[in-house]
Design a protein around this nucleic acid. Structure first.
Lengths: 197, 197
DNA sequence: CCTACCGATCGGTAGG
DNA sequence: CCTACCGATCGGTAGG
C-alpha cells in the first residue's frame, strides 16, 4: 500500500511530463497552454502546480532527459571494442530507436529547445556541441584508419544527425516497414551509399 | 519619381516579409509578436496593417513561395535528359543552395508550417506529399534501371530530404567550408556512402 | 484538488 | 503613419 501510494505520487508528475511532451510535440511549446495540458490530464490548470514548478520546468525536464540518454549511449559506444564504422552504425541505430520509442520527447528536444531559459539553454547547447564533437572525432579516426573515405568530418556528422531525424516524418505516416528494416536502409545509405558505384 | 514611389510601395511589403521570415526563424511563429516585428522595421505595430492583412498572411506567403520554388525546380529536373542518379544529385544540390541563400524562408517553411490556418495547411501538406511522391518515383525508376541499389524508395527519399536540412546547423556555425564543398560532401555521402566499401 | 482572480501580452481595429 | 484602446488568452498565485 505504502509502495503503491509512493509510486502513484511519483507517477503523477510522470503523467504530466508524458502528456506535456505529446502536447509540445503536436503544437509546439509556445502554442501549448497549461489549460490545454490540464484538460488532457483531467484537472484544472492551477492543480498542475501542485506537482510542477512551472511550464518551463516541463521543457527542461524533457530536453535534458533526452540529452542525457544520448550522452550516456555515446559514452558506451566509445568504450566498445569495435571499428569506428561499427560505432557510427550503432549510433545511427540508437538514434532511430530513440525516435521510434520516445518520439514525443526526442521531437521536443530537437525542435523546442530554443525556448529553454538560461542557464539551461546554454547548458543544452553545450551538451549538444560536445556530442557532435565526439562524433566528429569518431569520423576523423575512421578516416585515419582508412575505414572511411576522406570526407569532411563535420559535414558527415551533420548529414548523419539530420538524416536520422527523418524518422520524424516516417513516424507520422507509413508503418508498412519495420523498425529493423528502417534502420538497415538508413544505415546502408549513410554508410555505403545509394548508387551501384 | 513615379517609378521610385511605385517600387517603394511595392517593396514595403517585401521588407516586412523579409523581416518576418528572419524573426519567425529566430523565435518561432507563435513566439514572434507583431510589435517586435514592427520594431525591427521602425514603425508602430498597427502601421503594419496598412501593408498586410494579418500575421497569418505573412506565414502563408513565406511557406508557399518556398514550396513553389521547390515544386518548379522539381518539374524542371524531371524534364531534363539525364540519369535518375543525376536528377537526384541536382535536387540535393538545389536543396542545399536554397538552404544557404534563402535560409530564413526555407527554415520557416520547414519548421513553422504547422501554424498555417486551413485551407492553407492542407494545401501545403498536399504539395509536400506530391513532391515526396515524385522523388520516390525518381528513386524507383533508378532501381529499375539498375542505377541504384535495391533500397526502400520512401526511406531513401526521407533520408535525403532530412539530410539536406542539416544545412540549418551548418548555417549557424561553421563557415570554414564553401557551399560547393558542402554540396559535394553531402552528395557523395548520400549517393556513394561514407565507407571504403 | 478547486474557484476566483491577477497583471502581462497578444493580434488587431477605430479614428484621425 | 500615429495614439488609444479592445477582447481574448496567457502563466501563475491566493486561499481554502
Amino acid at each position: 500500500m505504502g509502495n503503491i501510494k509512493a509510486i502513484a505520487n511519483g507517477s503523477k508528475k510522470d503523467v504530466i511530463l508524458k502528456k506535456a511532451a505529446a502536447l509540445f510535440r503536436l503544437k509546439g511549446f509556445k502554442a501549448s497552454s497549461m489549460r490545454e495540458l490540464a484538460l488532457t490530464i483531467g484537472v484544472e490548470a492551477p492543480s498542475l502546480y501542485n506537482h510542477i514548478v512551472s511550464k518551463s520546468e516541463l521543457l527542461q525536464h524533457i530536453c535534458f532527459s533526452v540529452a542525457n540518454e544520448f550522452t550516456l549511449q555515446l559514452q558506451e559506444v566509445e568504450l566498445s571494442k569495435v571499428s569506428n564504422t561499427k560505432k557510427l552504425e550503432q549510433l545511427i541505430r540508437f538514434h532511430i530507436k530513440m525516435m521510434v520509442h520516445s518520439f514525443d520527447e526526442v521531437y521536443v528536444a530537437n525542435n523546442e529547445w530554443k525556448y529553454l531559459d538560461e542557464p539551461y539553454l546554454s547548458d543544452f547547447l553545450k551538451q549538444r556541441r560536445v556530442y557532435e564533437n565526439k562524433m566528429v572525432q569518431l569520423v576523423k579516426e575512421g578516416i585515419l584508419k582508412k575505414e572511411l573515405k576522406n570526407v569532411h568530418p563535420y559535414v558527415s556528422v551533420l548529414t548523419i544527425l539530420s538524416a536520422v531525424r527523418g524518422v520524424e516524418f516516417w513516424q507520422r505516416q507509413k508503418k508498412d516497414i519495420s523498425v529493423e528494416e528502417l534502420e538497415n536502409n538508413m544505415v546502408n545509405q549513410l554508410l555505403t551509399g545509394l548508387t551501384n558505384i
